[in-house]
Deep mutational scan, measured.
Amino acid sequence: MGFKLLSKLLVYLTASIMAIASPLAFSVDSSGEYPTVSEIPVGEVRLYQIADGVWSHIATQSFDGAVYPSNGLIVRDGDELLLIDTAWGAKNTAALLAEIEKQIGLPVTRAVSTHFHDDRVGGVDVLRAAGVATYASPSTRRLAEVEGNEIPTHSLEGLSSSGDAVRFGPVELFYPGAAHSTDNLIVYVPSASVLYGGCAIYELSRTSAGNVADADLAEWPTSIERIQQHYPEAQFVIPGHGLPGGLDLLKHTTNVVKAHTNRSVVE
């Protein structure tokens, strides 16, 4: 069995187990497998329904001669939608809004960016022009300005110390501490036991640490421990890039980060 097929099978099995364990909360999309990078042309966006009122959005972007996937989250909030992270750029984010209108038909009224990198804030200006209120932590807003990236308009308070959590509509926002970046936030959907790890969490097929220019490698494993301790009931975990899975993604990420750190020390 090929690795790609095995990865998709694991996603399907995880979703099936969740649907059985929580039949009222989960209505997993039966329309197909989780979209992969090879299936999404740059400039297009796919939506994948995880649970009743919960979707991931998947886009792709060219970077350094390669094409990478990027995940975000959409959560229903009454007759409105909360968006977590842009679709990595203005063109993708405009396509995301169009796809949401086509498939869901509810307005996106608020959006949260989970850290300051372009795959999370690139497209904020498109959201703002569409009347979406954009939010991020003060740290993310400051770092985005320093980096020359787009800056969300509103500040999220109460997320300055490791372990801080605040309720934001249908989700809980959690600051686990520094990891992929010093400002990275985690998003949890309690009604569906869905954990969105953003770039602080890796997919299972990833074996290298990737972009760690703004990471705190020493603190990252401790931050992941905080996530595990705060959300032990999480059933569906979405990484910032690639295929979702279960809580095993947290341990896998820790292993990859520690291996990278150990290699760096040896070198």
Rank of each mutant, 00 (worst) to 15 (best):
G2P: 12
L6F: 09
L6E: 15
S7D: 07
K8Q: 08
L9T: 13
L13A: 14
A15H: 15
S16Q: 15
A19R: 15
I20Y: 09
S27C: 12
D29V: 10
S30M: 15
Y34Q: 08
Y34M: 11
P35I: 07
T36D: 14
S38K: 08
S38N: 08
E39M: 12
R46H: 09
R46G: 09
Q49H: 11
A51I: 06
H57F: 01
T60L: 09
F63M: 14
D64V: 08
G65D: 15
A66V: 11
V67T: 15
Y68H: 08
Y68K: 03
I74S: 04
I74A: 04
R76Q: 11
L81T: 04
L82N: 04
G89V: 01
K91V: 15
A95Y: 14
L96P: 03
K102A: 12
Q103W: 10
I104S: 00
L106V: 10
R110I: 07
R110K: 12
F116L: 05
V121M: 01
D125C: 04
L127W: 00
L127A: 03
R128M: 14
A129H: 11
A130S: 11
A133H: 13
T134R: 01
A136K: 04
S137T: 14
L143C: 05
E145P: 06
E147C: 08
E147I: 14
G148S: 08
G148L: 06
N149P: 04
N149L: 14
P152R: 01
P152A: 03
H154P: 04
S155E: 14
L156M: 07
E157P: 11
L159H: 06
S160P: 07
S161F: 13
S161I: 12
S162R: 14
G163E: 07
D164I: 06
A165H: 11
P170Q: 06
P170T: 07
F174R: 01
Y175D: 02
Y175R: 01
P176V: 01
P176D: 03
A178T: 08
S181E: 03
T182K: 13
D183Y: 04
N184V: 01
N184D: 05
P190D: 09
P190G: 08
S191L: 08
S191T: 12
A192S: 10
S193A: 13
S193H: 13
G198K: 03
L204F: 07
S205R: 07
S205I: 08
S205F: 09
R206N: 15
D214C: 06
A215G: 13
D216S: 10
P221G: 10
S223W: 02
I224L: 08
E225H: 14
R226S: 06
H230K: 15
P232L: 09
P232I: 09
P232G: 12
E233S: 13
E233C: 05
A234M: 06
F236W: 14
V237E: 01
V237Q: 01
G246T: 12
L247R: 15
L249D: 02
K251E: 13
H252E: 02
A259H: 09
H260C: 09
H260M: 07
R263I: 12
